[in-house]
């Protein structure tokens, strides 16, 4: 019994050391100079609290495929794209959780490409450990700041100054057409989802319900997509009764053209493609949800300034 108490006390002391060092070394700003990793991803930290109505979570497909400023210009809806390359669902979950600290989005659009990132035992272990380490232990990400951090930072509260004028979008105007075959061939097959993905999706759903955020799944046009993945997402969304928009099947309605709307031959969209996707989603949101138009609201003047820069 004595040993158990001793182990518990040791672990508790260790945890205190970790918590103290994490707090000490964690960036107190979201700029590169302050040591923040992926500043664009965390650009929402500098947005005024509770001003983002729509969160978009996803990998590079979402980063290139959605334009918050276009949505603002068309419908006055505020949104932010939290995208990172090869983002996995655990990573997306972590970012969304972080966003909920300062924002109260009404809707979260979850891009489904990250449901199909590579799997396997080793990869699964990596996802889980990555999520655990980065959530429980920010020190993992920021331990290298020991060189730059100063004692006075220790007690300082975070103050975020990095401002993303495009609200997380990855802008790209290059055009490299896709000349391949049609990739959405109807079938009844269903791609399997890994245990990690299913587990993490359940967590995602739960946090959305708890925070009263409507979850919407969507897929940006992508030639790496196929019908069996589509079927998997349909059944996944059906199980928890959330809408699913597969824009690969709505290309005609979007006016989408693989000859002009992709930057790299069908993997990612360019700005033109992103505008078409955003136009469709904006219309869908307007038709199905009540989201406030902030264009006449003076407290959103900074959005108007950003929009002017965007349209120049």
């Amino acid at each position: 019994m004595e040993k158990v108490v001793r182990v518990f006390c040791f672990l508790f002391t260790f945890w205190l050391c970790l918590a103290f060092s994490s707090d000490f070394l964690k960036p107190k700003n979201n700029t590169v100079e302050s040591g923040m990793e992926k500043t664009e991803l965390y650009g929402f930290l500098s947005e005024p609290n509770h001003t983002i109505d729509l969160a978009v979570i996803g990998d590079s497909s979402a980063g290139n495929g959605f334009s918050p400023m276009k949505l603002w210009g068309d419908y006055g809806i505020t949104s932010y794209v939290c995208a990172e390359g090869w983002q996995t669902l655990p990573q997306g979950y972590r970012v969304f959780k972080k966003m909920l600290d300062t924002q109260k989005p009404k809707i979260v659009l979850l891009e489904t490409d990250e449901f199909f990132q590579p799997t396997g035992i080793a990869r699964t272990a990596l996802y889980v450990s990555d999520l655990a380490s980065k959530t429980v232990l920010p020190l993992y990400d920021y331990h290298n700041r020991w060189k730059d951090v100063q004692a006075k930072e220790m007690m300082r509260r975070p103050h975020y100054t990095y401002h993303s004028a495009v609200k997380g979008q990855w802008r790209d105007q290059n055009v490299k057409p896709y000349n391949g075959k049609e990739y959405m061939i109807e079938s009844r097959e269903e791609s399997p989802l890994s245990i990690t993905v299913r587990g993490c999706f359940a967590l995602f759903d739960e946090i959305c319900r708890r925070s009263h955020v409507q979850l919407v799944l969507f897929t940006v046009p992508n030639t790496g997509w196929n019908y069996s993945k589509h079927n998997a997402m349909v059944s996944c969304a059906g199980k928890i009764c959330v809408p699913y928009l597969d824009l690969n099947l709505e290309r005609k309605k979007l006016g989408f053209d693989w000859k002009t709307d992709t930057r790299d031959g069908g993997t990612h969209l360019n700005d033109q493609g992103a505008n078409k996707v955003t136009g469709y989603i904006g219309y869908y949101l307007k038709e199905n949800y009540v989201l406030e138009d902030h264009r006449q609201d003076h407290s959103f003047d900074h959005w108007k300034e950003d929009y002017q820069k965007f349209t120049k």
Partner: peptide, 12 residues
């Protein structure tokens, strides 16, 4: 342990 975690040359 803390030396390994903080001063270790790993990660970003």
């Amino acid at each position: 342990v803390m030396a390994v975690i903080v001063f270790g040359a790993y990660g970003r």
